[in-house]
Amino acid sequence: MRKSIAFFVCFSLWATPTLAHKVVFSVYDEGESVEGEVGFSNGDMAVGAKIEIFDKNNQKLSEIISDEDGFFKLPLKGDGPFTFQANLGAGHIAEVVLERDVAISAQRQQGEVNTIQAVIGGAELEKIINRSVASQIKPLTKELAAYKEQNDLQKILGGLGYILGIAGIGFYFAARHKLQGQSK
């Protein structure tokens, strides 16, 4: 009995690293359809993962298999909330809830399109979108640049580690030199 417990403990410990990845699962509402992607936190995409979709009453609506990029797309009409469950095997599961209210979103969308088209032409609109996107990603690019420039603790510790290592190599040669001197 004790042996089998030990065996079990060993195996559960051994299995831990494979469970260490987090599942990254995102779903985007496209109005009449839904697309999404699923993968692991280390950057690998989940190929051929089964994604099941449930409605608000927990009734299964449909299921789909992700493609080789971990991507999936399916038509999905009606009111939400919809629950997406991805099972990637080996204990990797993830769940995302997509809120959707058809009446409200349709109203809002139509309203937006009407106003925009009434007020500005196509070229002007493109300019505005470009400007808006540029201003939105500005803080991101700044943050990215700052992140690249950052001298964090890891770098400092890394440098100190190198110095320690070089000192060790120095010791090695000094000691060898000394020993050779003694043997003569």
Binding site: L160, I163, L164, A167, G170
Partner: peptide
């Protein structure tokens, strides 16, 4: 060597 290592680290930081 140890002194050199420590001073190298001091300079580095």
């Amino acid at each position: 060597i140890p002194q050199a290592g420590v001073l190298s680290a001091v300079f580095f930081v």
